[in-house]
């Protein structure tokens, strides 16, 4: 990471801490906002956040590792979260997963790490009545089949 990148991150963290308050209870919002901008929370920034909130870096790391939606490793541009609850599983999630895996690996081919799509399987996202369902970044998609999935993927590229 260049010094310039570091500076940008440190300043962004400082602005978040100003916004949410220099208090431990600001930790999650700070991490969430940081991740929204930089996709993951790198080692350097974890320490900066810890310092800004007067806690230990290992505590920040611990929090990131506890919550499924926070990451300390680099990630691609988009995250597709497919619901793996049993209702979705019984209603076409298996076919959907297979289809998505295939399509996404085609999509990711020849792409830089940064612009790749990540597929994750997550626990119930509260759309069992419209299964199978998934989240693409923050958008919800319901009753997905290979046909409309294709369109969703196209939107991402």
């Amino acid at each position: 990471m260049t010094d310039k990148d570091k500076k940008i991150k440190t300043e962004f963290i400082a602005s978040l801490v100003r916004l949410y308050g220099k208090d431990r209870s600001s930790l999650l919002p700070v991490l969430q906002e940081f991740q929204k901008k930089f996709r993951y929370i790198d080692e350097y920034s974890q320490q900066e956040i810890a310092d800004a909130l007067s806690i230990h870096p290992v505590e920040v790391n611990s929090i990131i590792s506890f919550y499924a939606f926070l990451y300390d490793k680099p990630r691609g541009k988009h995250t597709i979260r497919i619901c793996k609850n049993i209702v979705c599983k019984f209603h076409g999630n298996k076919e959907l997963s297979k289809f998505m895996e295939k399509k996404v690996s085609e999509f990711n081919k020849d792409k830089s790490e940064e612009s790749k799509i990540t597929i994750e399987y997550v626990n119930c996202i509260g759309l069992c009545d419209r299964s199978p369902s998934m989240l693409v970044d923050e958008k919800v998609y319901e009753k997905i089949n290979p046909h409309n999935a294709e369109a969703i993927l196209e939107e991402l590229s």
Partner: peptide, 8 residues
Amino acid sequence: GVLEAVNR
């Protein structure tokens, strides 16, 4: 502050 539980 060296040790903490990680993951879940």
